[in-house]
């Protein structure tokens, strides 16, 4: 009962945006007519061009994020193994954390001069510290909490990793992954706009804005939000729930 009521409230909150959108449209000259946007949406979604732009951004995000995860994991493992490595790498992590994404994008453009790898590297560079720190915290608390258990039960190292360590640090992995994922989408748009990309969401958005094609701007924005929310709630959280189903 309570849950259903709350769901209704949530739906109302989202639906409320439609009249607000309409009022905004009537009172400004840069908000597009929601009805025009709605009618343009099917055509927009049926164009191959739309999907190739979404595809290229998705490609950059996925590869960049994958690189960030791998790099972050390696960094976390090294930091957990060795004090000196921890000291060295934590400075690298701090440096990456403290670099505004716009500056990372400019530098990538300077170094890679618009090559595809540049955008991937930016996403990798910005997301890896979040992975590294999240995982390192997980490994640290695992060392504290699990050392005795593994000694008492004399598990082999592979079985230890599979049955003890991984389940223990899984929450850390997921939370770090969610943070990195959220950030990746934020960064890629900045990277595409500042990195003068010719294709991809940021490039299209920038282009549409420059020519004041406001319907296009709205279409791109809607599609972008939909994709981000889908990956976050339709993929990541579903996977997380599956992994943690034993929690009930």
């Amino acid at each position: 009962m309570q849950k259903e009521n709350n769901l209704i409230i949530s739906i109302c909150a989202v639906l409320m945006l439609l009249p607000i959108w309409w009022i905004a449209y009537r009172n400004t000259n840069f908000i597009a007519d929601p009805f025009v946007v709605a009618t343009a949406l099917p055509h927009f979604l049926s164009q191959a061009d739309t999907w190739s732009n979404i595809g290229i951004t998705l490609y950059r995000v996925v590869l960049g994020l994958a690189g960030g995860v791998v790099l972050g994991t390696l960094a976390a493992l090294a930091m957990n193994q060795n004090k000196l490595a921890e000291q060295v790498l934590s400075i690298y992590v701090t440096t990456a954390l403290r670099t505004p994404s716009a500056i990372a994008a400019i530098m990538a453009l300077a170094i890679f001069r618009g090559a595809e790898i540049g955008y991937i590297v930016v996403v990798m560079f910005i997301t890896f510290p979040f992975m590294a720190v999240g995982l390192r915290d997980g490994l640290k608390s695992a060392d504290k909490d699990l050392a005795e258990a593994s000694q008492i039960y004399r598990l082999g190292s592979l079985r230890y990793i599979r049955h003890v360590l991984l389940p223990f640090i899984a929450p850390f992995i997921f939370s770090a992954l969610r943070n990195a994922h959220a950030l990746a989408w934020k960064v890629i748009v900045v990277a595409e706009i500042f990195g003068a990309a010719r294709i991809g969401f940021g490039a299209q958005f920038d282009h549409a804005w420059e020519y004041m094609q406001m319907v296009e701007v709205h279409l791109w924005l809607l599609v972008f939000i939909a994709i981000v929310l889908f990956v976050e709630y339709g993929v990541l959280r579903v996977a997380e729930r599956r992994v943690f189903r034993w929690r009930g």
């Binding site: 992590v93 954390l97 979040f130 720190v133 969610r178 959220a182």
Partner: peptide, 11 residues
């Protein structure tokens, strides 16, 4: 998208 409190450690 929730950049959760676990990020505090990053700072």
């Amino acid at each position: 998208m929730t950049l959760s409190t676990s990020m505090q450690a990053t700072t």
